[in-house]
Every structure is written in structure tokens, then in C-alpha cells.
Design a protein around this nucleic acid. Sequence first.
DNA 1: CCTATCTGTGTATTCCATATACTGTTTAGA
DNA 2: TCTAAACAGTATATGGAATACACAGATAGG
Lengths: 243, 243
Amino acid sequence: MRSSEQDNQLPQALRALWGQTDPGRRGPKPGMSVRSIAAAAVEIADKHGLEAASMAAVAKQLGFTTMSLYRYFDSKSDLQAVMIDEAAGPAPTPNRRRSWRGQLEDWARADARHLAAHPWVLDVRLGSPPTGPNLLGWMDIGFQILHRSGLAPQEAASSLLVVDGYVRNHVLLGLQYASAASGVWVAQLRSVLDPDELPAVSAMLESGAFDDDDGAEFPGDEFEFGLALLLDGIEQLANRRAK
Amino acid sequence: MRSSEQDNQLPQALRALWGQTDPGRRGPKPGMSVRSIAAAAVEIADKHGLEAASMAAVAKQLGFTTMSLYRYFDSKSDLQAVMIDEAAGPAPTPNRRRSWRGQLEDWARADARHLAAHPWVLDVRLGSPPTGPNLLGWMDIGFQILHRSGLAPQEAASSLLVVDGYVRNHVLLGLQYASAASGVWVAQLRSVLDPDELPAVSAMLESGAFDDDDGAEFPGDEFEFGLALLLDGIEQLANRRAK
DNA sequence: CCTATCTGTGTATTCCATATACTGTTTAGA
DNA sequence: TCTAAACAGTATATGGAATACACAGATAGG
């Protein structure tokens, strides 16, 4: 029981991230910090996946006991919320020379690179929208860019979510389809698929559209294809608004 | 060790779904089936979330012991793969009167309704693309629709993935933002945000773009907005192809 | 200086996925 | 018809996870 008044507060760990530290400091100084713990957890997740970042593993990495972490985080899911913010890092600054569309493309590519570097981020299921400084920083930059496109606030918000959603999904699917197991997947399907029942998928399989093209840089052509699709749509809307 | 020859096979549970049953039936008849187990698990997940669908809980629901399930599934993640297929159900048949664009809209809306009915589906992290009959059925219908748009196979595949990704993300965000906790989230942000550092997010907050509009039907306007954006892009591409 | 307050520890609980060995059943083949 | 192989479901055990709770020592405000 921390604050019995109104429990609509942010979790303690998140408040710490925003520098909100209640001054009543009596006992010993903390030996760790919310950020340092999250950083250790990120390191583990980067190396061995989200599952490996258990409370015990993180604590061990820092040389403390498992339970010590609970002085900083109410629960593991709070830790993960901060991990995500930590992994995101500060938002990229847009290149002022470029058009809003170009800037939004850059934003999306940076987002994609970040997710590709920390794929486990996609495994974390948050119960609420982001509340960490870094993630809100990304959001802020995105809104700034779209603001200049002339879209109404509502539309800008929706558009950014669409772009972010696209990026997340693309990276996720990329991990699923383009992995080394992709050839395996195609083979598995072939062994089981009835071309009469699922003609379109079968045809797609034969067309080679699903075949491995690894060795491609990231973000690659597929990514740009979909992104352009989206931005076409947004631009069209913005032009309509401008008239 | 099941088949030591080539272990690029589908997991036993998935093969069972496709009716591939190796005939050597000697012992007693199975008292359950891959589908019935998955159905029970879906029921639990629908009611109490994915976490509640533990092997023990599912087995208990069916009146068997935990370990009995391992006769049907090699691992829990296999179970979840089948759960997703089970929850998806058969793909919707497109309305032949509508244009391909209209049919694709319908497809996306059906997808959204399905996900909203089984939100836990979004929590399942699959290591590979779908391999179940129902999900491939959805895929097939989607490809059929896009085939009629005149897009090349590669483009059709990408486009469908983009649409599906959009739907998934929209539902996910919908659960996060539009939940009853949304007002809470806005309040939390207000308590912590510095309008000088994050001007665009702050402005967005004040503009009311994030305020609760629950009681809205699903899929709602937001959904249609983004979907139209996407389809505009796809249609443009298809027109370019048609020329 | 002393005591409330805070940090980190030790221990225990509960839940989970899953390995392994076992019991009993069915049926193919002799 | 007999019998042994193959199979269904069970019992038991292991190791790992999150986290509750009570405590030991440190620190600083009064």
C-alpha cells in the first residue's frame, strides 16, 4: 500500500523514470536504479530473448538477490514496461530539410530498425498505452511531423498509429516468414495442402512469392512497398484537407 | 522420437488437424481429440484470458489429467497454435456482388470482429506463419480477392499482410487505449508530462483526441479511417498495374 | 542518540511445463 | 484363440518461475 488516496497513479517505477521521487529519504541509499535494472534486463533479453529475462536472472546479473528488485518494481510487468522504454532510447530528430512525408518515412525506418534490434519488444504485451519518457518522445516527434502535414489532430493520431502498427507488424512477420524456417514452412504446407480446397494459397506457394530471400538488407523492399502504400493514403488525405 | 527421417515435419497436432493420421491403431481409442482439447482451451481463454489456459486447467475442464494432453500435443505452444486456428473458425465467404475492394473491406471487418471476440489471440506469439486449416482458409480467401484486383502475386501477398497487420494492430491498440483505463492513462500522463519537452503529445492530450469514446460500435470510425487509407494505397497500385 | 524508515536478504509458497515410469486396454498377427 | 506390441491415460517428480512475508542492518531526522 503506497498511496491509498487515489490509486490511478502511475506505478512507482514509472514515476521514478519521470524524476518524481518523493523526498522522505531516511534509510540507506538505493544500490540500484530503475533504469540500471531495466538496462540489465534489456541486455539479457537482447542476448537470450524475453523469457530469459526473469527476475532471478536480472538480479543475478546485477549481483543482488531476486527479491531486491521488488524494491524498485511492483511486478515483473512493470519491469517490462520500463524495459521497453529503455530499449526504445531517445526519439530520432527529424531532418528539417525533408518534407513531412520524408520525415515520417525516416521515423518509420528508425522504428523498424529499433524493433529489429530488439525483437523481444514485440513479445511484451502492455495493458495500457506507453507511459515512459522515451516512448512518449517518439510519439511526440511523430505527432510533430504529422502536424505539419495539415491533418486534424484526430487524423494525425490515427495515422501515426497506423504507421507504427504497420512497422511493428512488418518486423514481426519478417521474423516469422523470412527466418531460416521459411523454407521449412513452405515445405510443410506443400505436404499437407489440397490445391482444390485452397487454390489461392497453393498458387501463391508455387509462384515462389513465399520463397526465402534472406540476405536482404533491412528495412528492405517489402517494407518500403507497404510504407509507400500507407503514406500514399495519408498524403491523399492531407491534400484533401489542404484544399 | 516420432519420425527420425526428416524432422521438418509439422508437429503431430497440426498433422492431425489436416486429417493425416498414420494408421497403425492398436491400443485403446483416444478419448479426446486435438480439436476438442483446443476448443476447451479456447473456452477458457475467452473467459479468463490466455494465462488461465494452462495445461492443468484445460485438462481439468475435460476431466483428464494434465499429462494426458501430451498424447495430443508435443508442447503447450503447439496447443496454442491449434487454439488460434480453432478460434479463427472457417473463413467468411465473400459477397460476389461487391467489388474486390468491398470484399477486402468485409474480410478486414470480419477479421477485426473475430479478434475482438478472442483478444487473447493477439497474445500468442507464433514462431512461424500459420499452418492450420482455418487460418490458411482466411489467407486463401484474401488472396482470391486480391487476385481479382490485378495485383501481382508478390504484391497481393504483401498487401494482404499489410491489411491483416493493420487489423491486428488496431484491435490491440483499441484494447489498450479505448479500455476503461483510457481516462486513467490520460490523467496519469497529465500528472507527469512537461508541455515544453513533449509539446505535440501535450497538445494532443488537450485536444481531446485521446478521450474516451466508448460505447462506440466495433469496428468503428477509427477503424474505417485507417482501412480506407490502406485500401486507397492498394487501389492506386492496382490501377497502375491495370494500365 | 535513538528510533522510524528504508534497503537488501532469506525463506517459503504456489503455480507452471514437462520428463519418466507405470497401469491397463485394444487389436494385429501367430 | 492366444499373445505381445502399440497405444491411452495416470502418478509422481523435477526444476523454474513470480512473489508474499518476516527479518537484519544501515541511515538520518528529531
